[in-house]
Design a protein around this nucleic acid. Structure first.
Lengths: 220, 220
DNA sequence: ATCCTAGGTAGACGCTTGTTTACTTGCAAC
DNA sequence: GTTGCAAGTAAACAAGCGTCTACCTAGGAT
């Protein structure tokens, strides 16, 4: 709703060099894209209508399709702009589980969750959208992860870690953030680090039928 | 499709005691409920129309609303009947992580995944449905888990484990099952056990700033 | 002052959704 | 056989969807 941050068309005493016209296609496209990012992030693909996007962007409904071709294409455009987790995965492989955990906790702490995390689950209705989504996840999450993993079954391990990442959205949306916020953040980060480590770490050489039950913690 | 298992109306040599009439409300209700279970499980709430349900149940569209009141109410009815994971959570607390892991892997191995897991994510559109879903998850998954947990932040720990459970649906649906099936099932089960353990186990007493990085495995 | 182009608009298109209403029909009791 | 009632049907309802076409209009170039 009102008072957009980027609403900075040159004031009455504008410098004149790059003053913005009243009818500014570029600005309108940007407003639509931002509205789409926010709404898709909050409600997923099916939960958002082009009319909602247009209303939020204070633009006409027809412009959504005119500028971006279709709702699905706009969704793909939004997805392409979301790349927070890229930087999280990149870095030294040893610290990857902890970086993922901290990213997870960071999303708990800030109210307006990054659009991506909520976008993942409720958006696989139409096969066209599913394809867009799959390609994105493959490029941005799974493949970069695999690149950091040594040992066999790298892809399966990356998918297990993705399970944690993608499960966060539904849990947050359904159960709210309060319960997770109530717990000690350092505790939660440690737990998540252990969870990601368990998913990603190279396998042990299982020479003997070693007892691997509950490797993290003993009973209280 | 065709050849339903329960299609056992008494044959021509029926015992006569409980022979089924051609017009059998009970049987029709059951067919609708089963069709709804299958379809909701496959496509989520928004991905299913009452016409799809009626077609699959070989019943009239109006009967869905007549017998169950509304699509949302039917969804709740389906949810109430799904209780596979109930038995998985119940049992001795120590084995809980492994039971959850084995349940997870079992779902990978069998093609027709239990309806629940695929139902969770794409079904939180309408607030009414969200409420139904939340109540179910609370009663069937979170609360039974908390009942088994000792120590502080039991709810946060249960939510972390739920994250893994709920993340499985989107991952399977988007990436397919092949990659996870390709890996050694025992390996995957061990990993998942460790993941669930990390989420659920009681916290360590952190007297000193102990170095808890990567507690599961050392480098290869 | 006029023209022209691109930005923006209103409204309708065809379709699908969940739901309801009026109707027909099978079947058992009398 | 006739009647009554519940099971089942067909069709329409209003609302919402994504998309598209025809139409205005602001504002720089001429």
């Amino acid at each position: 709703m009102g008072m957009r941050v980027e609403d900075e068309r040159a004031g009455p005493a504008g410098a004149g060099a790059d003053r913005r016209p009243k009818r500014d296609r570029e600005a309108t496209e940007r407003r639509i894209l931002e509205a789409a990012r926010d709404l898709f992030g909050e409600h997923g693909y099916d939960g958002v209508t082009v009319r909602m996007i247009a209303a939020r962007a204070e633009a006409n409904v027809a412009l959504v399709n005119r500028y971006f071709g279709s709702k699905a294409a706009l969704f793909g455009e939004v997805l392409a702009g979301e790349s927070v987790i890229r930087g999280v995965i990149a870095g030294d492989p040893e610290g990857l589980p902890r970086r993922l955990a901290e990213h997870f906790v960071r999303q708990i702490d800030q109210r307006p969750v990054t659009a991506m995390s909520r976008m993942l689950d409720r958006s696989a209705g139409h096969p066209e959208v599913k394809e867009i989504l799959l390609r994105y996840l493959e490029e941005v999450i799974v493949q970069p992860m695999i690149a950091q993993l040594e040992g066999p079954d790298a892809r399966a391990r990356a998918l297990l870690a993705s399970t944690i990442i993608m499960g966060g959205g539904p849990v947050r949306r359904l159960f709210g953030l309060e319960d997770l916020r109530a717990a000690d953040p350092a505790e939660v980060t440690d737990r998540l680090t252990a969870m990601f480590t368990a998913a990603l770490a190279p396998p042990v050489r299982r020479e003997a039928p070693v007892h691997r039950e509950a490797p993290v913690r003993r009973e209280a």
